[in-house]
Design a protein around this nucleic acid. Structure first.
Lengths: 257, 257
DNA sequence: AACGACCGTTGCGCATATCGCAACACACCC
DNA sequence: GGGTGTGTTGCGATATGCGCAACGGTCGTT
């Protein structure tokens, strides 16, 4: 819509591919060098472009700073909440959202199976690391070294006969979870409770949160819960999309003949 | 220089702080809503801004993509080289630049000493992990879990009587290096060779490379080499600055009246 | 050493892209 | 149902950004 802004933004992908001189930028944009110069100067003044000592331009520091700050201020809960409510509406079950912080996995949102309640009061409640579906999802994404170190460090309480017994089994489970992109807890924490969870990805492709639906076995058999897998995965993917801020934009490459 | 671009870019820091509606953006910019709308639409079309379902705007996906691609394509060697040459000119000693890749630390650039006595090294050659100054710098920046895992995995050859003897000593050394921001190798690899190194940081604050000056003890005593510390650190910092693409830009906040 | 090619920079007049206005459309809350 | 808060559209006036052409510097070349 705005020509000069359009052109200026068109420069960024160019610079992302590597340093480029004024002439190259002007050519690629199909504008006169003086025009390109003005745009680059403006980008430079805002730190989005950086003029190298050799005169060529690169993407500048504030781009990184902006990206970092934006990620910092992204609020998964806010974005996820409506989708959690919808998932709750569709399934009737309790829906959880959890984060990984400091060797713990904590619930940060919950939609109860009866009525929607934001359980802010229970933010920070630690999740059993070795059995909960959300914990498996979040920990499965850690770099291998950290994963192994964590697995060796934590304890393996036998909540039920189905609880993960030891580090070896836990690591195997995490590998499986990472590969298949979803996780379950079938009576591993409380004998009669089954959970099915899926990961939410951030802009950088890392798992930033995990959601799960939980239901008592007396209400739904494990197999019935597992049939919700497509829905749960779709919900998680939708949140990932929105969290990463994708979609929307129309085609940015609109060269005029 | 370019008004509309200027304004459009001014929106980005706003959005980085959190989602904002059209009115808020227009107010902050001091422009009419219709103007803000046009700018936001343009940003959105390029994926730099993202329109949330609730109508508010956030920074969009391509910002993250751009930042990632730019980091990917940054070539430390290209940027560092002139500074390495300058450091060599100023000191007369051999200067190395090294990266960390796949459990190895390798030299990727080298400027030879002007003195007749030269140490043997080669670009692409793996560096002895446990003793080299550059290796200590690069490994000291790893997350603790990976660092411990690596320390436990590698071997500790006794090149000389001053070589790092075992994992425990190595980890202690890495902690020291990380804290002080520079590293040495005083005869740990070859009895008569001393090195002094400093880290190069990327836009995200992580160590992306390390440089060092090396000199045989017969040419310079260890104490004399250490006196180069300010110069070496300054060189590394300069490279970090340039690599991160900072500086340059004039004040981006130029509100009219 | 002088030339030529290349790259970035400047000032300027013209045209057009961009601005702000004012009116519209919609939703939500009293 | 009126009020207030959004975001949206069309339009005319003018500031704004455009391309030109000429300049200045730095190479590398014959």
């Amino acid at each position: 819509m705005s020509q000069s802004v359009e052109r200026a933004l068109g420069i960024l992908p160019l610079l992302a591919r590597g340093p480029a001189g004024l002439g190259a930028v002007a050519d690629a944009l199909g504008v006169h060098k003086s025009t390109a110069l003005r745009l680059l100067r403006t980008l430079d003044a805002h730190g989005l472009a950086y003029r190298q000592p050799d005169g060529r331009y690169r993407l500048g520091a504030s781009l990184f700073a902006l990206a970092a700050e934006a990620i910092e201020n992204l609020d998964v809960r806010e974005i996820a909440h409506p989708h959690l409510v919808e998932l709750n509406r569709a399934t009737g079950h309790t829906v959880h959202l959890a984060l990984h912080q400091d060797d713990e996995v904590v619930y940060i949102d919950k939609v109860d199976s009866r009525y929607p309640v934001r359980m802010y009061s229970r933010i920070g409640k630690p999740v059993p690391l070795t059995v909960a579906a959300v914990a498996k999802l979040l920990l499965a994404d850690l770099p291998e070294a950290e994963r192994r170190a964590l697995a060796a460090r934590i304890e393996y309480p036998r909540y039920t006969s189905r609880s993960t017994p030891d580090a070896q089994a836990f690591l195997r489970e995490l590998d499986l979870v990472r590969e298949q992109g979803w996780a379950t807890d079938l009576g591993g924490h409380e004998e009669s409770i089954n959970c099915l969870g899926a990961p939410v990805y951030g802009p950088d492709g890392r798992v930033v949160a995990a959601l799960s639906v939980s239901a008592p076995g007396v209400v739904v058999a494990a197999e019935a819960l597992l049939e919700l897998r497509p829905l749960v995965l779709r919900t998680a993917d939708t949140i990932s999309q929105e969290y990463s801020g994708s979609g929307s934009g129309s085609d940015p490459n609109k060269d005029s003949a």
